[in-house]
Computed example of a mutant assay.
Amino acid sequence: MIKVVAVIKVKEGLDREQFLHHWNVEHPAYVRKLPGIRRYRQNPAVEHRKAWPFSGMAELWFDSVEAVKAAYAGPEAEELFAHEHEFLESVEWFLADELEVPLAGEPAAQLAKEA
């Protein structure tokens, strides 16, 4: 599986509640329409006294790089991008493989099975 990993910044002028409503409530409907999507996860940044460089991270799973290309080539992606422009200042992304690394005390063989 291939994963799109996107780090996002909220549009200036939106408070946290507005941002999370756009992202957590409205945006999944657009993501679900992408052809070939297998899984979607949102990771909002935790509120903190420190100003984080990003407002959150999203992960979208697809079967292959070709499936990612197909998903983002259609009208569903255009609708998704239009919605993102309503609440996001920026989106930076990359394609990744996911590799689970065992923690101390876990058998190393587990890594080979999952890779």
Rank of each mutant, 00 (worst) to 15 (best):
86 E>H: 11
82 A>W: 07
58 A>L: 12
35 P>R: 13
63 D>R: 00
8 I>H: 00
89 E>T: 05
94 F>G: 10
109 A>N: 14
88 L>D: 02
111 L>K: 13
62 F>W: 09
32 R>D: 11
60 L>S: 10
5 V>K: 04
70 A>F: 01
94 F>L: 11
73 A>K: 05
17 E>W: 14
7 V>W: 07
30 Y>F: 14
114 E>V: 06
66 E>K: 06
39 R>T: 07
38 R>K: 13
90 S>Q: 07
92 E>T: 15
9 K>F: 09
87 F>H: 08
40 Y>P: 02
59 E>W: 02
50 K>R: 11
62 F>R: 03
19 F>G: 03
55 S>L: 10
42 Q>E: 14
26 E>K: 09
44 P>Y: 02
70 A>V: 02
84 E>V: 05
67 A>Y: 00
20 L>H: 08
85 H>E: 13
33 K>S: 08
55 S>D: 15
102 P>V: 14
93 W>S: 07
89 E>C: 05
100 E>R: 11
9 K>P: 12
74 G>L: 03
78 E>M: 12
63 D>P: 01
12 E>V: 13
71 A>E: 00
4 V>I: 10
96 A>R: 07
102 P>Q: 15
86 E>S: 10
93 W>P: 00
65 V>K: 13
9 K>N: 15
40 Y>A: 05
88 L>T: 02
104 A>N: 12
37 I>Y: 03
41 R>G: 04
33 K>A: 13
76 E>S: 09
71 A>S: 04
76 E>L: 06
47 E>V: 04
45 A>V: 04
99 L>K: 14
33 K>P: 04
99 L>G: 04
54 F>S: 00
